[in-house]
Nucleic acid binder design. Structure first.
Length: 117
DNA sequence: CATCTGACGACCG
DNA sequence: GCGGTCGCCAGAT
């Protein structure tokens, strides 16, 4: 899991779409690497043209703090993303990574939980 | 190698 | 729906 790999996905994020840290990590094969994806964000190298503003936390919550917090909202609005009080309308802007495997009906649902329990 | 930290995620109250 | 808490991964000290 290299940060460089993370940037690859961000560049694949289309307009009017957002991705979650967890979902991003999953797309890379690291379901528990949500934080890692976030760490990569903090290192957003200015020059690679990384759409960091298109990345939000679970449920579309804006975890970013100021001054970028306000900046992100501004950028998203500029793209036409529906912004709520303190989060993004994921159900409308959540982006599904094309790397997702074929949704076979016979596939067994994997119970991968990182939370407590 | 051990310890602390962080733009996270999920469960429980 | 929000906050407290534990668990995950990778970097920095």
């Amino acid at each position: 899991m290299s940060w460089d790999a993370v940037y690859r996905v961000w560049q694949r994020i289309p307009r009017e779409k957002v991705l979650t840290y967890g979902g991003l990590a999953r797309a890379l094969g690291l379901p528990g690497g949500a934080r890692t994806a976030g760490r990569a964000m903090a290192a957003t190298p200015s020059g690679k043209g990384i759409p960091w503003h298109r990345v939000v936390g679970a449920r579309g919550k804006l975890l970013i703090r100021e001054p970028y917090a306000s900046l992100q909202r501004k950028l998203l609005e500029s793209e036409g993303v529906k912004l709520l009080e303190s989060r993004v309308d994921l159900k409308l802007h959540v982006w599904k990574s094309p790397n997702k495997r074929k949704p076979s009906r016979s596939q067994k649902p994997k119970k991968k939980r990182t939370g407590r329990g």
